[in-house]
């Protein structure tokens, strides 16, 4: 290996990378929040005993679990606008792709948590005369939440990594900014190693924070 590394040109453009990092965090945060909403609706539909509610939700979830994320990005950016005859910014398309994707996975996390609560807990509450709503609120959900936390964190971690695909739609995330810096400096090893390390720091920090939150949320067990 005779390559002589020189990080100075990259560091000169660090402000561009920092902006990219900020945009990556922003799109991840927005997509997690929207994904949770999508996931809650889908999970409630799937848990319903009415077939016309549970079936479409199941199809939606299976469709997302069995197709690559990049297809969703391109579909929302190029196909969806044609269908509705509207124009779509890279940001909106990427948020739609990320939040529907994560929504499908979150739905499984939420449903799995609810289903994992033992039948006896339902019966214990019912035998006291609780309504379905009260039973959910007081008995089932509090127990399910602590079981949802670890898979929820895992899914959010995956989402954070998937945000890099937004660059393919020219959304100015960390990877896209790196491509710009690369075309100015022509130093691919330095540029791509730098952002790989930036992603590493971001993801490791996020998972450490998540672990702290997890320890708090699952305290009673």
């Amino acid at each position: 290996m005779t390559y002589s590394w020189d990080f100075r040109p990259v560091l000169e453009h660090f402000d561009m990378l920092a902006l990219g990092l900020l945009n990556t965090v922003k799109i991840a945060a927005v997509s997690i929040v929207l994904g949770v909403l999508v996931g809650l609706v889908l999970a409630m539909m799937r848990l319903s005993s009415r077939r016309w509610l549970s079936w479409p939700a199941a199809v939606f979830v299976e469709f997302y679990r069995n197709t690559p994320p990049i297809v969703h990005f391109f579909w929302f950016f190029y196909a969806f606008p044609v269908l509705l005859s509207v124009s779509m910014s890279p940001y909106v398309a990427a948020v739609l792709a990320l939040s529907t994707q994560s929504g499908a996975f979150y739905a499984e996390v939420f449903r799995g948590g609810i289903v994992s609560v033992e039948r006896g807990q339902w019966e214990g509450g019912r035998a006291l005369g609780m309504t379905h709503a009260a039973l959910m609120r007081r008995v089932i959900v509090p127990q399910a939440v602590s079981r949802m936390v670890p898979p929820f964190i895992e899914r959010s971690f995956e989402l954070l990594k998937t945000t890099a695909l937004a660059s393919t739609l020219a959304y100015a995330d960390l990877l896209y900014q790196a491509m710009l810096v690369n075309s100015e400096t022509s130093r691919p090893p330095e540029v791509y190693t730098t952002i790989a390390l930036m992603y590493l720091v971001l993801l490791v920090t996020a998972s450490q924070l998540a672990r702290l939150a997890e320890a708090r949320l699952t305290a009673y067990q």
């Binding site: 006896g120 214990g124 035998a127 005369g129 609780m130 379905h132 127990q143």
Partner: peptide, 24 residues
């Protein structure tokens, strides 16, 4: 109807084999 079942269950106490206490 759920409302009626709830009031029936309120008037009949049940003790289960597996206790079914709320662990949280």
């Amino acid at each position: 109807p759920e409302k009626q079942l709830c009031s029936v269950r309120e008037r009949l106490g049940m003790v289960f084999q597996q206790f079914n206490l709320f662990p949280h």
